[in-house]
Design a binder for these strands. Structure first.
Lengths: 259, 259
DNA sequence: AGCACTTGGTTTATGTTGTACACAGTTCTA
DNA sequence: TAGAACTGTGTACAACATAAACCAAGTGCT
């Protein structure tokens, strides 16, 4: 059967993600492994961002030619997906946690920590639904936490979208603010002054009364203490989301037929 | 003074975004304009996604050379930022709306509509805090809606992060699911079967009991009716977030010193 | 009126990228 | 033992962003 390689094949991607591949028996022993490739790629991304990850770079790091990688990975896109999958190992939910709220709080915080450690993960373009084992495990955890509420599957998924949206959104914002320098090549300070200039010079208090007032109150000074990452801000929004969920659950349970 | 062009200069970007530039008087008349460039770039992105936007492509579309664009835009990065800014015109809040909840609901829905119309906007890498007039106007609107609650600036900003995170997150998910085909080059169907395979073949009911149950119940069949975009799902999460905000506001107002 | 200077658009060139393709060596199977 | 399946390499290509040098077109100063 002709291999007809390299037009994207979801099934191949899927199999790579789940690591199902009986090693072929006829050829020479591979000197490399998917694992190695993905790990080096992750190392590069950790150190210099996902922009530094090129096929050439990864291959060089391993001491092989660029093209050798293509014996293990169908395309760079797949490599990126594999990176994300492998970069987010999922610990088990601490067993001492009980109640959906505590579990979800843990879940959200842990997810946020991943984004914090692997900031580049947010830069990987999201082209297909997440299908990797870790992604799925994470999904299962959140759904399992919600299971005790007795909500329907659809409702639980809806809630999950909200929660993970918040986590991702917060992370996105935090990284953007924290990493302007490495991302743009201009100094942190240059951005700060530009932003300040925008607020004072261009924000017309007529058109933007609320914003102007907040600025005047100094509400934009809190700025970027280095690792303000998993700080109050994150907790603030998180509890707010959890409150929303709680209210929904309450209302829903009130109107549910007893089992 | 030497111009030392093209190392990223936030101030230049800022000025481009706000359109402050007294036209120079000494050179030949420009045959092009920033506006035209950005508009064509947007048109290309609308039609074929942001991946199709290259300097070459935009210039060709306009009948100019690639390099001519650089007389108007310092870099492609800036062009992308300008595209996002211009692509999201912000209507005024309908005056008949009263109460923060209605206003925020409108705001969220309108924002989501932008993402729906300009799906490519979600693909533009976010490297710096949003500084364009439209972004700012949108921010002002949300803050203004919240102003009546009497919360502090910091609290309002925190809430805004949650809300916009949700909107963006939902949009991200919806587009990803809806546009797999154009994004990956593999057919919708191929992805569906791969996903189904994943759910049935790889999702071990031992390890993923909740997920497995939901799948068994058919909870993943709702699938992708073409423009299920601004549907119940969006409203579901939105009300949930609004509920969270409401609860926070209530609690906060209960403990506030009367003016 | 003339000259310097600024600006716009083109041409040419450079380095980097992902990946197609053909090949040579290796290992197993028939 | 012939060939099929497989690995890693070398070469090649098209697309990309953008730097540099250049000429023509205008403006302002003297």
């Amino acid at each position: 059967m002709a291999t007809d390689n390299h037009r994207p094949e979801p099934n191949r991607t899927l199999e790579l993600l789940w690591g199902v591949q009986q090693p072929p028996s006829r050829g020479p022993k591979p000197a490399l492994s998917l694992r190695q490739i993905v790990d080096t790629a992750i190392a590069v991304a950790d150190a210099e961002g996902v922009g530094a990850v090129s096929m050439r770079r990864v291959a060089d790091e391993l001491g092989f030619t660029t093209m050798s990688l293509y014996r293990y990975v169908p395309s760079k896109t797949d490599l990126l997906e594999l990176m994300v999958e492998h970069a987010s190992e999922v610990p088990d939910v601490p067993p001492e946690l009980s109640g959906w709220r505590d579990k979800l709080r843990w879940w959200a915080t842990d997810t946020a920590q991943i984004y914090q450690r692997r900031r580049w993960a947010l830069d990987v373009p999201l082209n297909a639904p997440p299908m990797g084992p870790n992604q799925i495990k994470r999904m299962e955890q959140a759904l399992a936490a919600l299971d005790e509420t007795g909500l329907s599957g659809g409702e639980m998924v809806g809630i999950l979208v909200v929660l993970s949206g918040y986590v991702r959104g917060h992370a996105q914002l935090a990284t953007t603010l924290a990493d302007v320098e490495s991302r743009t090549g201009a100094s942190q300070q240059a951005w700060d002054t530009a932003y300040g200039r925008m607020l004072t010079e261009f924000v017309d208090p007529e058109r933007h009364p609320t914003l102007a007032r907040i600025v005047a109150e100094g509400g934009f000074e809190n700025g970027q203490d280095e690792d303000e990452w998993l700080d109050e801000d994150f907790g603030f929004g998180l509890e707010l989301v959890l409150d929303g969920i709680a209210r929904y659950v309450e209302r829903r349970q009130g109107s549910m037929s007893p089992e």
